[in-house]
Design a protein around this nucleic acid. Structure first.
Length: 273
DNA sequence: AGGATAGCCTGCGGGC
DNA sequence: TGCCCGCAGGCTATCC
């Protein structure tokens, strides 16, 4: 389930593997996965990078972008089961491989997304910038002040606020629970009822849990893999996510679970206030 | 207008 | 063994 750390691991993997490559063929297996913004005169194949060179990668929150020559940007939203995989022609025709780019070197870059909560949008760099401006600050680099400004004025539960991509970009269900546990704050506490110290602790915990997960190569729960297909190593390190009914790693109290912001939520009733 | 809610989609695991 | 049902979840649309 890609959240910010998984997206960043994918971005780094691609950055090391495909920069400078030229796209020589684009095939779309499923039309509705691809969208274009603006009124570009390019053909769809050109919008998807045909005959363009991959010059860079970028990320904001969970959004990933391939930056190509001729001011062409391909934004990828991985949803919950999306992957970008690099391999030979076999992966280009595998199940749920919706878009495949053939690179000049002979390899294929494939967007695979069984559940199709993700998608691809073609745009210019100006359109990409405008799109990402509508998101909150990136959760990996957010300052304590930026975090406080983003979430402190809403009456929603703090967990709902930090998962709202327009408030803070990059945190999903897994890392929301992990960060709130590290910060010692109950997920159902109203955001506007959190103290300055609590908000600071949450901001620090968000940065820490995301950084640790990136170092571990991301959390592989079910669907996630790095571009080379290998698994991430962070899942074993979860302190609360998926551990409802088990003992708190800090105090031994049985972890509780409930539904907050429409998502399964796990917390320690003793460590989190 | 902000906040809550429904729905999209497939794969997997539990229960019978 | 095999089938069915519930759950997982990011994001958008829609409702209140």
């Amino acid at each position: 389930m890609p959240e910010l750390p998984e997206v960043e691991c994918i971005r780094r993997g691609l950055d090391a593997a495909i920069l400078g490559e030229r796209i020589v063929e684009v095939s779309v297996q499923r039309e509705d996965v691809v969208k274009a913004v603006g009124k570009s005169t390019q053909s769809r194949a050109q919008a998807l990078g045909l005959n363009r060179t991959i010059t860079g990668t970028s990320r904001h929150g969970k959004r990933l972008a391939l930056l190509l020559s001729n001011d062409t940007c391909i934004e990828v939203r991985l949803g919950m089961s999306g992957l970008l995989l690099l391999g030979d022609d076999a992966i280009a025709v595998s199940a749920h491989a919706h878009v495949a780019w053939r690179l000049a070197g002979g390899r294929f870059l494939v967007f695979r997304d069984p559940r199709r909560f993700g998608g691809i949008t073609c745009m210019t760099s100006a359109e990409l910038h405008a799109s990402w401006e509508r998101l909150g600050p990136d959760a990996l680099s957010v300052t304590n002040q930026g975090f406080q400004a983003a979430v402190s004025r809403t009456s929603r539960a703090i967990k709902a606020a930090i998962m709202d991509q327009a408030c803070l970009a990059g945190v999903g269900n897994i890392y929301a629970d992990e960060a709130l546990f590290l910060a010692g704050v109950r997920p159902d506490r109203r955001a506007d009822a959190c103290s300055r110290d609590q908000l600071g602790a949450i901001a620090e915990a968000v940065r820490r849990v995301l950084s640790e997960a990136i170092i571990a190569g991301g959390s592989t729960i079910r669907d996630y893999a790095r571009p080379d297909g290998s698994a991430g190593g962070f899942a074993h390190a979860h302190r609360v996510y998926g551990r409802s009914g088990l003992a708190c790693t800090t105090c031994g109290t049985t972890l509780e679970s409930g539904n907050i912001a429409q998502r399964t939520t796990v917390w320690c009733p003793r460590c989190q206030a």
